[in-house]
Design a binder for these strands. Sequence first.
DNA 1: CCGTTAACCTGAGAGC
DNA 2: TGCTCTCAGGTTAACG
Length: 287
Amino acid sequence: MPELPEVEIVKQSLQKSINLRKIVKVVVNNRNLRFKIEKDFEKNIKNKVIKNVSRKAKYLIIELENDKYFIIHFGMSGTLHLIKKNKNQKRTNLSFYHSNILGKKHNHVLLFFDKFKIIFNDPRRFGFFKFFKNRSTLQKYLSKNGEEPLSPLFNLSYLKKNILSRKKNIKNILLDQKIVSGIGNIYASEILFYSRVHPMKLGNEISIIELKKILKYSKFVLRKAIKNGGSSIRDFKNTDGNEGYYQQKFKVYNKENETCPNMLCISKITKRVISNRSTFFCENCQK
DNA sequence: CCGTTAACCTGAGAGC
DNA sequence: TGCTCTCAGGTTAACG
């Protein structure tokens, strides 16, 4: 569900709340997420102090003391909830990734801290947790992915090397985490609209000028989404319980048959399924 | 190695 | 109301 900007917002929330706090108890209700949660996961992270929370692409990275780590991936429907300890066990406004109907049956992982707990809820179970015994195994795992757009290494020469010889369409290239990591289905459509590139255009048909636009707008769209607190098309909320509002700034995503936002264009936005994913674009502006 | 498709899951909403 | 169908912010094994 969340793409890079939404995970970044969750990361910022977590940094405020769990940095330097100790995990005092771990409960796993359902180990069968996208990958099975290892048997000794609880033992591995229990009684460890959280040294830092970071993010790489769509992965949330929790660093523990003594060079131990675990990562969280949210899949399509994963959410994290911070719940303050009180008599009524009522949810506070500190839920940062919050679904309005929080079915208890999908609360798969619970991390207890001194004064609050964090719940991982994921109805579809495409998300996962994974533990790493040191930094190098973590880095090895994460290095299977390509550069993320906000990295300085995501530059023109990287894109030339990884896009211009490809025979697959640019929409699928942007979604391929091994080539570019962090962009998902919403931001892929948005980036291509800004770049004025047709989603079905093949990598080997992309010009250098277009590549420069894709480079520029990948960074632009993701940064702007982060500034706006992410996109809340369903249930995303930030630390204060407020929704992100980048969805209000979508140019094409979910806007089939609406007039193209380009003032000089009178075309309607097209919706087209590409590799099983809905894709939105303007046939007139994106060639 | 490359590109495409089906599959993994549950729930919400539309249409009847 | 209730049934059936489609769709959803992701990833990857299997196939040609």
